[in-house]
Write a protein that binds this DNA or RNA. Structure first.
Length: 268
DNA sequence: AGGTCGACCTGGCAGC
DNA sequence: TGCTGCCAGGTCGACC
């Protein structure tokens, strides 16, 4: 799925585009994206006003005037696009007030939508770690967590019980900018490096949000446009290409079943 | 506890 | 052209 910066971009687009709008009709084109009964989904959304749009980790929460919450996890290929037209990957179509339309498009149908009363009905939220910009995500927290694990630091960054919202692209970029090898285990990361790591987590994510995220393949914002952080990507998907800092070439390895890209020379 | 793998899905692309 | 295999931003659960 899009990672935190992409989901935050969608959130902001939805906030300016559809908050305070009423959901008049819901067209369920492909019910596989629903995690509840179709009729119940429709019944709880129809006629409701969207009063707030929030994000936690990589999930979006549309708060309704009924006190229900529409939770959307776009996963790998989900898109929320305001306006535009139905396409072959459109799974849901919402008719909103002021003649606005909202499409939920999802090529791989991994995304999940569900209306709940409280977010802790969903396990994801119960186990989710702190937001990276929250004050509880500080050096002491990181040090305590890292000290007790021998898992590679790359895997720890991907673990959403450690920190919410970081995925495969940004974990690679963060470690590159921190000059830390993704192979190092949590307990090998020194105090000084933890400070650097935290600073890079925040800097990289904020920079990516400012650029409306990165678009490797499927991601678009709520306006249907791609993100601009791609231009700032320094290691991800650059296997065999020269490191932007030194002469050696970027290496690809598999960690936690996914590709990790890094520079063996300048990430230690 | 932590790791690995498969499942959930579709489609683009490289190689033959 | 057309086939095969690999790859993809996420998450969960089964299993060792």
């Amino acid at each position: 799925m899009p990672e935190l910066p992409e989901v935050e971009t969608i959130r902001r687009d939805l906030e300016s585009g559809i908050s305070n709008h009423i959901i008049h009709q819901i067209n369920i084109i492909d019910a596989r994206v629903l995690r509840q009964d179709k009729a119940d989904f429709k019944r709880r959304l129809k006629g409701r006003k969207i009063v707030a749009i929030k994000r936690r980790g990589k999930a979006l929460m549309l708060e309704l005037d009924s006190a229900d919450i529409l939770v959307i996890a776009v996963m790998m290929t989900g898109q929320l696009v305001i306006g535009g037209n139905k396409n072959p990957h459109s799974r849901l179509e919402f008719d909103l007030s002021d003649n606005k339309k909202l499409f939920y498009n999802d090529q791989r149908v991994f995304g999940q939508l569900r209306v709940v009363r409280h977010i802790d009905e969903i396990k994801y939220f119960r186990i989710l770690g702190p937001e990276p910009f929250d004050k509880v995500f500080n050096e002491d927290y990181m040090a305590a967590y890292l000290a007790k694990t021998k898992r590679p630091v790359k895997n720890v960054l991907l673990d959403h019980t450690f920190v919410a919202g970081i995925g495969n692209i940004y974990s690679c970029e963060i470690l590159f900018r921190s000059h830390i090898s993704p192979r190092r285990t949590g307990d090998q990361i020194k105090k000084k490096e933890i400070a650097v790591l935290r600073e890079q987590i925040i800097t990289v994510l904020k920079e990516a949000i400012a650029l409306r995220g990165s678009s490797m393949r499927n991601y678009v914002g709520g306006d249907g446009q791609k993100g601009q952080f791609n231009k700032s990507i320094e290691v991800y998907a650059r296997e065999g290409l020269p490191c932007v800092r030194c002469i050696s070439s970027i290496t690809r390895i598999i960690q936690a079943g996914r590709s990790t890209f890094y520079c063996m020379k300048c990430q230690r």
